[in-house]
Design a protein around this nucleic acid. Structure first.
Lengths: 340, 340
DNA sequence: ACTGGCACTCTGTCCGCGGGAGTGCCAGAG
DNA sequence: CTCTGGCACTCCCGCGGACAGAGTGCCAGT
């Protein structure tokens, strides 16, 4: 049996009221607060159906109804109109971003902004290296057997690593290495670099082969392995809004999950499609987050995506508002990066 | 009236039991668990005195006693023998630190280690720039009117900033700038650099005066203003051990405080003396942390101090163990930096 | 100066008891 | 066939009383 329009409308009303009041909502209260044009008895029948189908449930017999994860899912998929941002929010976004000085600054401000606007936990991934391009590679001699490798990308990110050389290397050789490396790699997308690094080693004159191999090893690590590591987090205090009730007893599992960068990256990082993604309760693969929802999206200059951002909160969350805010912030950050 | 030895012993017993059990401790339980050699009645009298002096209090009439902030203070100051680390802990520290690759890695591992060993929230400040020395300054042309300034310090830290030039600058001039800047500043303590930067500007030939001024501005910012910004945090989930009870109802204020880097830096950053510092409950200047204690100390290679680290937990904390661990970790990190 | 004993106080908990909110179902109307 | 009003039922929640237990303060005695 499919759900007719009125039943959907009832579900919407339940979700909205429950999100607002955090209390199970009963049929009587529903007809009072929303203009459904039918009596409470009718609503009760609809509710019985919705419950049978798994969209809502009763905490106890003869209490009001509460949406299930499935109910929120339906709500998000079919009942959510994009809610335009309030002018105040727009202003907040614009104001927040004036006077940024560097990439770190952008990321930190963004994550705070997102946390503040959504009143939830915000996560922002640093622009991922693998999707950006090398702007410049710098080699700085630290001692005769040590180099500092500094990589600058077109997203403004800087990575540095120490290179231990097998044998002392004269200053002139360092210059030569720098020249060759930049010639080959500057301007390339990071994802395309590994074969080029191999070529560099192959082409290398035997007498500096040893140094080049060491350098290549570190280069590959820098270019590929450490590529998606960093992220910023803000708004953990928002988890405590509404007591501990929203997270079935304890914040513990949630806080634990938030400490694992790997987990967070999984949450906001899978950004194949450029659409906004909503994961509700049990849909999360991570057990610790079964009682939470995550709204995430990708961002980047223009149409390309170089990183993810998102927010995490209780399943009982204002989805339309949150989705709108996440999208708006992502778009704004993308524009900001494009200007660079 | 001063406290005799037995009263101090009673206080110690109360603190230890309360820390262990989280329950107000009564006179009877005390004499059973500790060999005080007197009866419960005597202990009760001692307790009455301790309460009058403000070292312990009763949650309600005729409940057991609980230490006050003042009680913990006395305990820490006069009753704490340094508790040697367990072999397991020693091993954990050593194992944790093998295979570190760079400064970021050291800091992240340290903060996790500290959180894990103390089972509290850990904070580690990145080695402060102002106490370290410039190893090398690198100028990388990004475009004709933009330079990337990269600074490497002897603690292994790397800072980068963008410099906008007033006019296009040929490649050769960049080299010249780099040479001059390094000549003057390399090897200098960061704190000593501002006057040197001024000299650089003064000595500069008029035709590159403009560029040098821009560079000098950014240099000063990098050298001084942004010097103590970064830190790492771990173990927030430990706040939830023992329910929310340890923090008078809500974690909220604590979580809020932990999000403010400025606050955290104040907590672990004031490291004039090289001793370990313990701030208990109300002793914290930050209101949000009135129900928390902070144990912090400085670390650095050899006897110099380049940063702070510490842990934060409920006032009801295992002070001897925590202090020992914090010290041990600080010493270990210092050694690690010295090897660099 | 310490101890044993005793009366007192307070908490936490369990129980039983309405009140209230909400439901499910049914019979009747449109 | 759909909706409605009515009614009986169920279950939560809050309240007050009773009770056991833990702990104290004090006092008289050694």
């Amino acid at each position: 049996m499919s759900l007719d329009d009125r039943k959907l409308e009832v579900l919407r009303a339940i979700v909205e009221d429950y999100v607002k009041t955090r209390e199970p909502v009963g049929s009587k209260a529903l007809v009072e607060r929303h203009q459904l044009g039918v009596s409470s008895a009718t609503v009760r029948n609809d509710m019985a159906v919705l419950e049978e189908e798994g969209y809502i449930r009763q905490p106890h017999t003869s209490a009001g109804r509460v949406p299930t994860d499935l109910g929120y899912r339906l709500f998000v998929d079919r009942l959510t109109r994009v809610k335009p941002l309030s002018p105040a929010e727009r202003r907040a976004i614009e104001r927040f971003m004036i006077g940024v000085v560097d990439l770190d600054d952008v990321v930190h401000r963004t994550v705070r902004l997102l946390a503040q606007l959504t009143r939830q936990v915000a996560v922002v991934q640093y622009p991922s290296l693998s999707k950006s391009a090398v702007r410049h590679l710098e080699l700085v001699p630290i001692s005769t057997t040590r180099l500092m490798l500094v990589m600058i990308t077109d997203t403004g990110r800087v990575e540095q690593r120490l290179v231990e050389l097998p044998a002392p290397l004269p200053e002139g050789e360092v210059w030569e290495l720098r020249r060759r490396v930049n010639e080959k790699l500057a301007g390339q997308k990071l994802a395309d670099t590994p074969p080029l690094v191999q070529i560099l080693v192959d082409e290398c004159a035997p007498e500096r082969r040893g140094s080049m191999i060491c350098l290549a090893t570190v280069l590959l690590e820098t270019l590929v392995e450490r590529s998606e590591e960093r992220l910023a987090l803000a708004g953990t205090a928002n988890l405590t809004r509404g007591g501990v009730l929203d997270f079935q007893g304890t914040l513990r599992p949630v806080l634990e999950a938030l400490e694992e960068e790997v987990i967070l990256l999984k949450l906001i990082g899978d950004l194949e499609p450029s659409t906004t993604r909503v994961r509700i309760g049990d849909e999360n693969e991570i057990d610790n987050l079964r009682s939470a929802s995550v709204v995430s999206t990708g961002y980047g200059p223009g149409a390309t995506i170089v990183g993810g951002l998102g927010v995490l909160g209780p399943t009982r969350m204002d989805y339309p508002g949150t989705i709108a805010t996440v999208r708006a912030v992502a778009r704004y950050v993308g524009d900001l990066l494009a200007q660079n």
